[in-house]
Structures are given as structure tokens and as C-alpha cells.
Simulated assay, not measured.
Amino acid sequence: MIRPFGVGAAGPHVRDLQHRLTATGHWHGPVTGIFDSVTAESVKAFQAQRSIDVDGICGPETWGLLIEAGQRLGDRFLYLRTPHLRGDDVAEVQRMLSTLGFSVGRIDGIWGPLTAAALADFQTNMSLGGDGVCGGRTLQTLQQLVRPLGDASVVAHITERQRLESAGGQLIGRRIAVGEAGGLEPVTASVRREIGRNGAEVLTVHHPDWSTQAAQVNRFGAAVYIGFEVKPAAPSVSYFQGRHFVSRAGQKLATDIADGLEPIFGPIATNGMGLPMLRESAMPAVLCRFERIDALLERNREVADIVAQSTRDLLADQPAA
């Protein structure tokens, strides 16, 4: 696990960072191995492009995304393994499969079971063996078929919609997950009680690592996830947005929650982000961030009411593809 480093750092790790920023088009100066203010601005530009928190510090999340950005299509075989392969090359294959009508789930740059199954299905249809390994021949066939179609990756949105369509606007029998990264147990408890009162089965997750939370709610099979976090920044509600995919269901849920919370907390932004919890969860997910923990704890019952109503509204809605 890489330790975060920023302005003032120097050495081979900074040179490596500057090389990787050069490869992504975010560094145009000499590779000095010195993390100065110009390097920090380049890191911020990369973070903004990847829709993660912009702080100019290279931590594990930023470093991981820099490595992913360096994965070029065709440079390696893509197949199902543990841990899952990640990278821009994975996202591009997912986009092509989705464009051709093969459901990969979400276009998230993570080679999971759905992507592996979609590729195997494509290979079988094209008499390519169906081994689930994306090599040169499979990639060439994908590119030849997709090229005339342009960027029409709609199946991922249809898949997300179908996960919600059967709910009929009810929480009864639905699995809903609620999580927080520390210190907000009273809030998640209130949300759990309110949603549970409407007949849903609710999982509450308390863990400081968002990837761990995503793995737990995926195993639970949640239809929706709502997370809470206190962060020294303007209040916001975020949903998943990647380079080739925006969670429309997550966007609707985020907008409804933000609209409901504004009379209580003032202006609340909604934004698409590639944060680990939002990217790695298999269901529509939102992350509610608040600047002050005391204000949130004081109004947590009202927050619970708004979240429960917004979740009901989401399950009643059938977004267009």
C-alpha cells in the first residue's frame, strides 16, 4: 500500500509519478523527481478527470488510477482472476461489448464475472471458442464490429434499469444497504429503522475502507446503497460516473436526496464521481457527505425520512435507457 505523498516529497517515487502523469497527458515538464506545486496541479488535473477527490496528493486511490490509466488496449490478455483486473483497457472492452448488446453490468473498468460471461457469450456467438479470455483475435473482432456503430453503449443502462423495475415502488422484501466510514452509527441506525419500517431488509455496514463496504453490499445483493461520510467540504450527494458510464438511477436518487435535504442543510451539490464505493458497488449507490457531524446527528431522523422516501421513489421509477 502506497503512503500518500505531496509537495515537498522527492525521489524515485516522484519520478515514477511524473512519468505516469506524462503518459496520461497531465505532465509536460522535465521529470525532476521533485514534487513541487506544478506537480500538485498536474495531480489535481488527473484527479478531476477521473472524478475523484481533488487534493493534489498522491495516495493509494490516485496511484491505483494512474496505473489503470497506463493499461493500453491489446497490451495484455484480459480474463477473470482474483483480484480482478482493472484498467482503461478493461473499460474499453466493456464499452464495446455493451455497444454490441452484451451485458457487462456497469462499465467500471473492473473485469468481474459479468464481464467475463459477456465476453464468453460474444466469443460463442462469433465462433471464437468461448473461453472468456480477451486476446488479439477476440479484440480484433470486437473492434471491427463496433467501429461502424460509434459510442452507443446503452446496454449497461438497460441492465441497471431492469434491476429496479420489479420493485413497483415498494420497499417490502427489497434489500437495501446503508453504510458509513466511522462516527455516524446513529444516522445509519435511523435510516435502517425508517427503511425497515417500510418492509425492506436492511444491511448496515460500518467500515473505514469503502472497497470493503462495496464487497459486503455486493455479497448481500442490495438493490440500492446509501452511504454517509463527514468531510471538510461543501455538502454533496454523489453517484457513480465513469469514463463510459453514468449511473442514471444513482443520479436520480442523489438528486432526490439532495433536494429533500436542502431545506435543512442549505445548498447541496450532486455530482458524478468515481469513488471506490460508487464504482465498485454493483447496484445504484450514493454517498452523502456533510461538513458538520453535529448538524447531521441533530437532524438524523429527518434525514432518514428523506432517504426512505427517495428510495421508494427510485424503486417506483423506470428510467428511460
Rank of each mutant, 00 (worst) to 15 (best):
R76M: 00
V14S: 07
S103I: 00
V154K: 14
Q49S: 15
R193N: 12
G33H: 15
V93A: 06
R312K: 15
T255C: 03
T32L: 04
S51V: 00
E280P: 07
E280Y: 14
G70A: 09
I264M: 14
R174H: 07
A120V: 01
P186I: 03
R193Y: 11
P148G: 10
G64D: 07
I268R: 02
E262G: 05
C134Q: 10
P4I: 05
M277L: 15
M96D: 10
R76K: 13
G105S: 11
T204C: 12
A304E: 06
R279G: 08
V307W: 08
G56Y: 08
G135I: 07
T141A: 12
L139Y: 04
L297D: 11
A215L: 08
I172Q: 07
H28W: 09
R197H: 14
V202H: 01
N218Y: 15
P208G: 10
E298I: 02
R72P: 00
G169A: 08
D256Y: 06
L80G: 03
A40R: 10
G272V: 06
A215M: 09
A9N: 09
L287V: 08
L142N: 13
Q170P: 00
E160G: 08
G274N: 15
Q140H: 15
F240S: 02
L314C: 00
Q216M: 10
L85R: 02
T115Y: 06
S37G: 05
P83M: 10
S211C: 02
I306Y: 04
I293K: 14
R161C: 06
